[in-house]
């Protein structure tokens, strides 16, 4: 599902590459943790995968498409097949949970009735159907993260990328969110979670790819 060959990313005026000759593969339906200390390159790698950045060297394949050479006009179409969850949720806080989740379908031009149904189903999966009309700024952190996950899965993406999804949550809420991500993975979605939380890494037995100084340091369960 995801393949990286000799991928390097260098930011302007940076002392060293953010990613340096990275090779890795994530199989379809796999759940992978991406870990490493701050500055290891986790976020850069995720940004390459959700097409916010392009690499300077190497090849990045997502669902068989080489995104390193994809035309700008093709990026939005591929982004619709990738769900992303952030530590800071990235929700529009003046809108309701329903409106936030619907945004992912609005850009695709689905009919209002289909959108309404799919948004309801997604919110139900994350246990927030009863709060669909609430403005997200009135929800707790855990609930906001669940709305973000609902937005990420409402398009039924091939890949779900999560950058420190539990970073802003207390341990109890963090477990909820991880269980939800595991459930999504169990239904066939490939999940990549970037985290430096050792508790998550030990509690959930998934493959771990460790990065250090922009390189793959080790990979294993």
């Amino acid at each position: 599902m995801i393949e990286l060959y000799h991928v390097s990313k260098v930011y302007e005026r940076a002392a060293r590459p953010a990613l340096d000759d990275v090779n890795l593969a994530v199989e379809k339906g796999e759940f992978v943790f991406l870990t490493g200390p701050s500055g290891a390159g986790k976020t850069t790698l995720l940004r390459l995968l959700f097409l916010a950045e392009r690499c300077n060297r190497g090849q990045v394949f997502i669902a068989g498409k080489n995104v390193a050479h994809l035309a700008d006009s093709q990026l939005p179409l591929l982004r619709r097949q990738i769900g992303v969850v952030f530590q800071d949720f990235k929700l529009i806080d003046t809108r309701t949970a329903e409106q936030n989740v619907a945004l992912a379908l609005d850009v695709q031009g689905l009919s209002p009735s289909v959108t309404r149904q799919r948004v309801f189903d997604a919110l139900k999966r994350v246990g927030l159907a009863h709060k669909r009309a609430a403005e997200v700024r009135r929800l707790s952190g855990g609930e906001q993260q669940r709305v973000a996950i609902a937005r990420a899965i409402v398009t039924e993406p091939l890949v779900l990328l999560a950058d420190e999804p539990t970073g802003n949550l207390d341990p109890e809420r963090a477990v909820d969110i991880m269980n939800l991500l595991s459930d999504i993975n169990a239904r066939g979605t490939t999940v990549v979670v970037a985290t430096h939380d050792p508790i998550l890494l030990t509690r959930y037995r998934h493959r771990i790819i460790a990065l250090a100084d922009g390189r793959v340091h080790s990979a294993g369960v």
Binding site: F50, P76, L77, R79, R80, K90, I92, V107, T155
Partner: peptide, 8 residues
């Protein structure tokens, strides 16, 4: 966010 979810 709009760009992120695939808006043209």
């Amino acid at each position: 966010i709009m760009v992120l979810v695939g808006a043209s």
